[in-house]
């Protein structure tokens, strides 16, 4: 039972973190029709900048400064990069973000080196909060959850209650019409792109020290975030939330399950002939965990091409 509680707790933290990344990506896609392949690179940039700034000014300053900084970088990239490419169509835009991901991926090790940097959890939050299932639960995990929930509330209120939020939601389905009603859609694009990058930067600040801040972090998380956005339905905020939490729980659960695949399937009532493919059934679920998001992605796309809550086909 406690084991389940731990899985739920960790799954929720991980899921909310994934949402922080995927919501920016899905908003940008919904409005501009472009999958930003560099999105996870802004997450990595956030983690490395947080490392540097926390050394000079402390973690709390980094928590405020870095999202703003990464958001500004994102806005500049959109305004002076993407916007000029926009007239050549979506493929050009996609290739632009592809190139951008490589540039950030090369610049980061140039500045910070190729090995992980010692970005640490702040001392004030570096203690075990309580014990669950025989594990000490770090206070910092709870802090991550609090930041993620606060972010979610602010984002929700901004989209539901403000005029700009209305413009953004309308532009998710009909960006051209929004412009013809007199709203400066290119400016809104820049704002949304910047805000999405700021959220990715924030995720980098709070996750970089809980996990590892190293030059490969964008690649490993990027693919999962794409899977989430497609699974949830391109452009759907609620879809991104549901898919993030789903992947968060499923992956946390499968990592902590040390059970062989064959045994797990039999527990689920799926009969397998263990005499055939003996080696396959001996693999533990934990080792299969990394592939689970993509299996879910393919299942969702096969059964429901629009994604869980999307309105258009991927």
């Amino acid at each position: 039972m406690e084991q389940l509680g731990l899985i739920l707790l960790n799954g929720l933290v991980y899921g909310l973190l994934l949402f922080m990344l995927s919501v920016g990506l899905t908003l940008i896609f919904g409005m501009m029709g472009v999958l930003n392949l560099a999105h996870a690179s802004f997450y990595m940039l956030g983690a490395f900048l947080a490392f540097t700034i926390s050394i000079r000014l402390g973690f709390w300053a980094a928590l405020i400064i870095v999202p703003v900084l990464v958001g500004l970088i994102g806005a500049v990239v959109e305004r002076y990069g993407l916007r000029t490419v926009h007239k050549h169509g979506h493929l050009a835009e996609l290739l632009f973000t592809f190139g951008l991901a490589f540039i950030i991926g090369e610049v980061v090790p140039l500045i910070w080196g190729r090995t992980p940097v010692p970005y640490r959890v702040p001392a004030a939050l570096d203690f075990p909060l309580f014990s669950i299932a025989g594990n000490a639960y770090p206070a910092y995990r709870l802090f991550m959850m609090a930041v993620a929930i606060a972010m979610f509330l602010v984002l929700y209120l901004a989209l539901a209650r403000t005029r700009l939020g209305l413009v953004v939601r309308a532009a998710l389905t009909h960006p051209d019409m929004v412009g013809m009603l007199g709203h400066d859609v290119p400016k809104v694009f820049t704002l949304v792109f910047g805000a999405g990058c700021a959220l990715a930067g924030l995720a980098g600040v709070i996750a970089g020290n809980a996990f590892t801040t190293e030059p490969g972090m964008a690649r490993s998380l990027g693919a999962i975030v794409f899977a989430i956005v497609v699974m949830g339905g391109l452009g759907s905020i609620w879809g991104a939330l549901v898919a993030s939490l789903l992947i968060g729980f499923v992956q946390t659960a499968s990592i902590s399950l040390d059970m062989p695949l064959g045994t797990a399937l039999m527990h689920l009532g799926i009969p397998v002939n263990t005499a055939m493919l003996t080696d396959l059934w001996q693999i533990t679920i934990a080792r299969v965990a990394p592939v689970v998001p993509y299996v879910l992605l393919i299942l969702v796309l096969a059964l429901r091409p629009r994604g869980l809550m999307g309105t258009r086909s991927a």
Binding site: D176, G179, M180, L181, G182, D184, V185
Partner: peptide, 8 residues
């Protein structure tokens, strides 16, 4: 002009 400028 861009659409939003025309509209305005």
């Amino acid at each position: 002009l861009a659409p939003h400028q025309v509209a305005r």
